[in-house]
Design a protein around this nucleic acid. Sequence first.
DNA 1: GGATAATTGACATATATCAACTATTGGCTT
DNA 2: AAGCCAATAGTTGATATATGTCAATTATCC
Lengths: 243, 243
Amino acid sequence: MTHINTDNCNKSGKLHGEGCKSCIKEHRNNIFSPLSQEEIDFLIDKKRQIVYNVGETITKQNTASTSVICINEGLAKFYVESANGKNVIVRIAKAGDFISGGGLFNGNFQHFSVSAITKVKCCMIDSANLTSIFGKNNEFAIKLLRNHTKQNNFLLKKLVDHTQKYMPGRVADTLLYLKNEIFNSNEFSVPLTRQELAEMSNMTKESFVRILHQFKDSKYINTKGNTIGILDESSLVSISENG
Amino acid sequence: MTHINTDNCNKSGKLHGEGCKSCIKEHRNNIFSPLSQEEIDFLIDKKRQIVYNVGETITKQNTASTSVICINEGLAKFYVESANGKNVIVRIAKAGDFISGGGLFNGNFQHFSVSAITKVKCCMIDSANLTSIFGKNNEFAIKLLRNHTKQNNFLLKKLVDHTQKYMPGRVADTLLYLKNEIFNSNEFSVPLTRQELAEMSNMTKESFVRILHQFKDSKYINTKGNTIGILDESSLVSISENG
DNA sequence: GGATAATTGACATATATCAACTATTGGCTT
DNA sequence: AAGCCAATAGTTGATATATGTCAATTATCC
C-alpha cells in the first residue's frame, strides 16, 4: 500500500529516515545542483515523499499533473500506453532521475505512465514552487533545459533505433542499456518480465526470448531466470551498431 | 548560394527588407513572446539572418553548434541520419519554429540535421546571449522549457506511432500532419519527393506510393504530381487511429 | 533528351501470431 | 514450515503476413 509522509519531509532529514537526507545528497549531483541551501530548504518544505510498492502506478498517462517526480530509491518503468493496448517502455528511471512531463506546467496532461518495478521512494515537488525559483536562479533553469534537451536527444535516438534496426540490434541495445545505464554491472537481476523486456525492445515476447536464446548459444550472454550476465560486450556492441 | 547579412539585422527592421520586421512580429506569438522590447533588441543586435536555398543544409548532425535557429520564412526538414544510410524525417519546420538541440549549450553536438525544402529565411541566435536572458526574465525560461516539453511529447507520440501502427495508419498520419500542421489547407503542393514522404512515414518509397494509390482508389484523397488533396479527412483519421 | 523521380509487379524475408507445452511463483491448507 | 494447486510467466515450433527488396517501366523535369 502507498505510504505518504503527510507531514512532509523535514529539512534536517532526520524525522523520516534516510529519505530526505539522500534526497539532498542527490541534489548535489543532479538537476538540483545549482540550488542554494535556502532554495533546497524551500523545495523540501513543500514536497511530499511517497513510497510505492512493486506494480503501483506513480503517474498515469492522460491525467493532469501539477508536480514533478524525483526518484530517491528504486526503479520505475517509464512507458507509453498505445491505442492497440501494447505498451512501449521508453526508459527505466532510477535514483536521482527527474521526471517532468506535462506536470511542469499547470493544466497539461501526462503523455506517459510511470510505475514501480521495485519498491520506489520518490519526492513529488509542486511545479509552481519549482518554476518560482527560475527567476532567482539562472543556472537552475539552464540545468532543467539541459535535462530536457538530453531527454529529447535520447528520444530521437530511440526513434531511429526502433525503426531502423533489426531485432538482434534492438535486443543488444536493451541489454547494453541495462548493463551500462541501470545496473553498472556485467551481471544483474532484472526486475522485468520477458514481456516488459520485449516492450523495451519493440517486439513480441516470443521474439525477444528467441534472440536471447541465440545470444546465449553464441556465448555473448548468460541467463538464468531473471539474471543476465554479459559475457561478450564487444560482440553486443557490434550487433547493436550493424543491425 | 547561401546569403548572409554580415552586418546583422537592424532593430528598425528597415535595412534588410522584411526579414527582421517579420522576425519581431513572430516574437509576439511564439517562444519570444515574454521578452521585453529591450531584450528583443539585445538579441536582434547579436543575431544573424541567413537565407538558404532549396536543398541546402542548415544544421548538420554530429557537428557542434553554439546557436539556435528561428525560422522566419519557408519550410525545412528536421531529420536524423541513421547508421544504415536511411533518413528519418522527424518533422517539418515552418515559420515561427524554434530549433534548439545541442546548440543551446556550448560544446554539445547536434543529434539531427535540418535542411531547406523551400527557400528558407532564418535567424541564428547565439545561445550564450539567449541563456543570459534567463536570469532577468523568468517567463522566458519557462516558455523555452514549455517548448522543449512539447517537443518531448511530440517525439513520444511519434515513437509509438512509428512502432505500433501499420503502414496505412502511418501514411494517414503524414497526410493529416501536412494538412493540419504545415499547410492548413485541404489541398497543398508538397515540396517533398515520395522518398522523403516515405522517410516521414517510416517505410520505403514503394510502399508509400502503393498506399497513396489505395487511398486515391478509395476516394480519400486526390493526387496529381506533388499536389495532394484531402477529400475524406474523417476516413483518414479513422485509419490513423485504428492501424 | 538525358537524368531523376514515380509507379507497378514479382518475390524474399523479418517478424508477428497462434498454439502447445514447461517452468515458476504466490497463496492457501494442513 | 512443508507441500500442493492454480495462475502466471517462459519457451519452443509451425505458420501467416506485413513490409522490404529487386527489377522493369513510365512519367517528369531541367
